[in-house]
Write a protein that binds this DNA or RNA. Structure first.
Length: 491
RNA sequence: CGGGGUGUAGCGCAGUCCGGUUAGCGUACCUGGUUUGGGACCAGGUGGUCGAAGGUUCGAAUCCUUUCACCCCGACCA
């Protein structure tokens, strides 16, 4: 057990906050709601980025970069879009400072007021579609498959490290297509990319589905999403992909000439994941001993720690350790040999355990004699003695095994915390005791959805893709329903 | 925006009610020595003007006024 570390049982929320800070992932900054992502946390984000970027490119996308600032007028062009974001926009009104007349510090120069205010992007649909207008003339210009890695700002009332910060890092894909069918296929394809990434890389099982109209992205015709279940029984939206119809094309006058020489509006999608994924990663696997990382996203996959009494021993051990390091690297495994003599082994064990390094290898005099090493795995905290023969293959398998184990553990947690409710009482009882996903009938109206949300604090997380149709009665209104949807309290 | 809380050394805190030597403690950090298979030990040492501004007083971390910031819970949201 780590020193001075709150357990999940004691206070889940506090456990999360302490974990993020003590594992050196991020810190609060001098700016309200904005975090500093520290090197260790950023290294994980870079791994997330690298894999997603690879997957985007494999599916035909290219990267570009659009401005941080968006002219205010752009926001009024798509009615529901502005409605969705208006309440959380940071606005630039001036472009110059001056010395304060009273000699105390600086003030905004009143003469430097902008003609038109600039909005710090909360998302980039508007500036991108304004640009696409000039890029798209013909069906030959389509599809346009662009992604951007960027920061965005949403002035949230209340923030939490990684889960909800005023500024966050993300990627946003914005694609333009000649047909509705193609755009829908794109939105669905990117949802699949996200789901695959979540499950195979983050070891987080997700459910794919579509949002109810109330929860839909501002300006979208259909919002697809993946939802994951955290250890405290709350759901977390891990990624979204939107079919935007022709809404933005019409708002920004983006038309093209089809093969048939007809002027048509372009069909659009947008899709994104953010540093919130870091929150999902942390909450899915970590325990009361600290962070637990899936091997595929761990900045350091294996750490080697020497134990010695004399310089001679250290030199022999280092020789062996470097051989092992080299063998592991040949398998593409990221290894760190920590031979610092400024910290004791026990201190290092705890340090790497808290930071979630998947595998720890210990070599001491005893091992030198026996031709062995001690191998400890972070997910189960089990220790074992390994013969050195083919160590790289054994560790490679162990890492795969840990990756798989984390996924299975998260999957069975979700299965054990997914329930069916057939009455309003049962529904609330589940939410108030275990939490988790609750599959229940809903009459399909936004009014009922709103009332359920107000009274139970649970929202419709999604309507699962390929949902089974089933006659039933809405748990709230008692009206006829054709399918169950998934409810949960959410982040 | 409503409710609660906190600002004192890098970090975590005590001291504040009831004003009074040189503002303490743990940890971290530095030096030396002994240690090293689960957060070592001993000795010595560095570091703060108490969130900010104003006021009361012979004297303020402590009392009064104003103000700023951050955190937590809620409403809102990826």
């Amino acid at each position: 057990m780590a020193k001075d570390f709150t357990t999940r049982e004691e206070n889940y929320s506090q456990w999360y906050n302490e974990l993020v800070i003590k594992a050196d992932l991020a810190d609060n900054s001098a700016v309200r709601g904005c975090m500093v992502i520290k090197p260790y946390g950023y290294a994980i984000w870079e791994k997330i980025q690298a894999q997603l970027d690879y997957m985007f490119k494999e599916t035909g996308h290219v990267n570009a970069y659009f401005p941080l600032f968006i002219p205010k007028s752009f926001f009024s062009k798509e009615a529901s879009h502005v409605e969705g974001f208006a309440k959380e926009c940071a606005v630039v009104t001036h472009y110059r400072l001056m010395n304060s007349p009273d000699g105390k510090g600086v003030i905004v120069d009143p003469d430097a007021k902008l003609e038109e205010e600039l909005i710090v992007r909360p998302t980039s649909e508007t500036i991108i579609w304004d640009t696409y207008r000039t890029w798209i003339q013909s069906y030959r210009d389509l599809p346009l498959l662009i992604n951007q890695w960027a920061n965005v700002v949403r002035w949230e009332m209340r923030t939490r490290l990684f889960l909800r910060t005023a500024e966050f890092l993300w990627q946003e894909g914005h694609t333009a297509h000649a047909t509705q069918k193609e755009a829908v296929a794109e939105a669905e394809q990117m949802l699949d990319v996200y789901a695959e990434f979540a499950e195979k890389w983050m070891a987080i099982p997700v459910i794919k589905g579509i949002k109810s109209p109330n929860e839909r992205f501002a300006g979208a015709v259909e919002t697809y999403c993946i939802e994951a279940l955290m250890q405290d029984g709350k759901a977390l939206q891990a990624g979204t992909s939107h079919f935007l119809g022709q809404n933005f094309a019409k708002a920004f006058e983006v038309q093209f000439l089809s093969k048939e020489n007809k002027l048509e509006y372009v069909w659009a999608t947008s899709w994104g994941v953010s540093t919130r994924l870091m929150g999902a990663l942390i909450m899915s696997h970590s325990d009361d001993n600290g962070l637990v990382l899936p091997p595929k996203l761990a900045p350091t996959q294996v750490v080697i720690i020497p134990i010695y009494k004399t310089e001679e021993q250290l030199s022999l051990i280092s020789g062996k350790a470097n051989e092992i390091k080299k063998a592991l690297k040949s398998k593409g495994i990221t290894v760190k040999y920590d031979d610092r003599d400024t910290y004791k082994p026990g201190w290092k064990f705890n340090e790497y355990e808290f930071k979630g390094v998947p595998v720890r290898i210990v070599i001491g005099p005893r091992d030198l004699e026996n031709g062995t090493v001690e191998v400890a795995r972070r997910d189960t905290l089990e220790k074992a003695v390994y013969q050195l023969t083919d160590i790289e293959t054994k560790i490679e398998h162990l890492l795969d095994n840990i990756q798989e184990n984390l996924y299975q553990k998260a999957l069975s947690f979700r299965e054990n915390n997914t329930f069916q409710a057939d009455s309003w009482e049962e529904f609330n009882q589940i939410l108030d005791t275990t939490g988790g996903f609750v599959s229940a009938h809903w009459d399909g109206t936004p009014e009922t959805e709103q009332l359920i949300k107000e009274e139970s604090k649970a929202t419709i997380r999604l309507i699962p893709l390929n949902n089974k149709l089933e006659e039933g009665k809405c748990i709230y209104s008692g009206k006829a329903s054709t399918q169950r949807v998934l409810f949960a309290r959410a982040y």
